[in-house]
């Protein structure tokens, strides 16, 4: 009952907390050309754990912004304009906060749960693994 596969179908969160699950989901998203959404999700988690005193943290915030939000990438398209503006302004003012990507991550996660995650659970990549 508590096999990895049972956990994967429980929630997106359980899937992403499992190494094999996250890896398989990533392979699926690569094929669907939306792997950036998953990388962004993990980047948000990684960023939240960073030390705000470390000068590296501002550089990482800028890197996340540049790579996923500033351009018209798949992540940017799924975010609300207000969310993007908030992050842009925080970076501009160099007001770095551990929670500054939380809202964006929540929005991306909701979209993943509704779309990619459901598609994954019926995909041949998943069914073959099962």
């Amino acid at each position: 009952p508590d096999s990895p596969l049972a956990r994967w179908t429980k929630s997106l969160h359980s899937l992403l907390g499992d190494q094999d699950g996250a890896h398989l989901f990533r392979t699926f998203l690569e094929r669907e050309k939306c792997v950036d959404t998953l990388d962004f999700w993990f980047a948000c988690n990684g960023f939240r754990q960073m030390d705000l005193q470390d000068t590296k943290t501002l550089r990482v915030a800028k890197a996340i912004y540049k790579r996923y939000i500033e351009n018209n990438s798949i992540v940017a398209k799924q975010l609300k304009p207000a969310t993007k503006t908030y992050i842009r302004d925080s970076i501009k003012k160099q007001q770095i906060d551990s929670a500054m990507f939380d809202q964006a991550q929540t929005e991306i996660q909701a979209t993943m749960e509704e779309n990619a995650y459901q598609m994954f659970l019926t995909s041949d990549i998943y069914l073959e693994y099962v």
């Binding site: 907390g17 190494q19 993990f42 980047a43 990684g46 754990q49 590296k56 890197a63």
Partner: peptide, 20 residues
């Protein structure tokens, strides 16, 4: 100094689930 890409990659990797 690490490049921006390296920093981003490091950040993503740090959040990935580890082997059990």
């Amino acid at each position: 100094i690490d490049s921006e890409d390296d920093l981003l990659q490091e950040c993503i990797s740090s959040a990935m689930p580890k082997k059990k």
